[in-house]
Simulated assay, not measured.
Amino acid sequence: MAINNVNNNGVPKTPLDNSKINQQGQNQAAQQQAASKTAAAPAPRQDSVSLTQSAQQLNQVQKKGTEAPVNQEKVDKLKKAIQSGEYKVNPEVLANKIARLESEIFGVKS
């Protein structure tokens, strides 16, 4: 038993044209791809860097440190003294030098 024209009030259905359906599906797919490409590809961002004044000063100090001459003979003597245990640190002198260096770096007068 064949059931035809159900819920069509007796009006026969027109046959579907599969080629039109395929074209419509392809057009929709192409439109979706184009939309996703434009949405997924934002404009290229421009990167930028800004350094604080402290960072710029630190950079200058580092450059000066690499350019400064090194007394290799003195460095070698200190290395040997430290390795042999002959090098002694005076804590008071060291503390004073650290305090003086900090005041020069941070601009605090003691």
Rank of each mutant, 00 (worst) to 15 (best):
A2H: 12
I3D: 02
N5T: 04
V6T: 06
N8E: 08
N8I: 06
N9Y: 11
P12L: 00
T14R: 01
P15F: 08
P15Q: 10
L16Q: 05
D17C: 04
D17W: 07
N18L: 12
S19E: 06
K20H: 10
Q24P: 02
G25W: 15
G25L: 14
N27V: 09
A29R: 12
A30K: 05
A30M: 07
Q32Y: 09
A34S: 11
S36Y: 08
S36L: 13
K37Q: 15
A39C: 10
A41S: 10
P42M: 07
P42K: 11
P44S: 01
Q46P: 01
D47H: 12
D47M: 12
V49P: 01
V49G: 05
S50L: 12
T52G: 05
Q53T: 14
S54G: 08
S54R: 13
S54Q: 14
A55W: 04
Q56I: 14
Q56K: 15
Q56L: 14
Q57I: 09
L58R: 07
Q60E: 13
V61Q: 11
K63N: 06
K63P: 00
G65M: 14
T66C: 04
E67L: 01
E67M: 08
A68H: 09
A68N: 06
V70N: 01
N71I: 06
N71D: 08
N71P: 00
E73P: 01
K77G: 05
K77F: 10
L78Q: 11
K79E: 05
I82E: 00
E86P: 01
Y87T: 05
V89P: 01
V89S: 00
N90Q: 08
P91D: 07
E92P: 00
N96L: 08
K97I: 06
I98E: 03
I98K: 02
I98L: 15
R100K: 13
R100P: 03
E102K: 10
E102Q: 03
S103A: 14
S103I: 12
E104L: 12
I105V: 14
K109V: 08
